[in-house]
């Protein structure tokens, strides 16, 4: 049981690192350094990403994980308000949990 939890935590860390890199590629590593990034960071608020930057992020996630998960269906199925309040941690959880169930 502990091994499962540890593996999941490790997976989350790896996915978070990858997603943070995507965000850095889009809004600039210098901006990330300034404002900071964590699992709780909300794309539109804390990271101040605008819609076209979130599209670029979604495309990067699709390219990286698209074979394993249906990220776009998940994100497209969200109400706009939910999408507006989406955090990087929620995307991490979705990817890690989808990998578990595959």
């Amino acid at each position: 049981m502990d091994t499962v939890i540890l593996n999941k935590r490790r997976q989350s860390e790896i996915v978070f690192k990858q997603l943070s890199k995507f965000v850095g590629d889009i809004i600039g590593d210098d901006v990330i350094e300034q404002i900071g990034i964590s699992q709780e960071s909300i794309f539109t608020k804390n990271l101040e990403m605008d819609s076209i930057e979130i599209v670029a992020f979604a495309e990067k996630v699709k390219q990286k994980y698209g074979r394993e998960i249906d990220f776009i269906s998940w994100i497209s199925g969200m109400e706009f308000q939910k999408l507006y309040n989406l955090s990087i941690g929620q995307v991490v959880d979705y990817i890690v949990n989808s990998n578990d169930s595959n």
Binding site: S51, I52, I54, V55, A58, I72, S73, I75, S76, M78, F80, L83
Partner: peptide
């Protein structure tokens, strides 16, 4: 505005059947 106005909603629904091209 930009292509995101279609991206998260209309475009992916249409893409279930059609080749969808979005551009800025």
């Amino acid at each position: 505005t930009n292509l995101s106005v279609f991206y998260f909603s209309v475009a992916h629904e249409l893409a279930k059947k059609y080749h969808v091209v979005l551009y800025d």
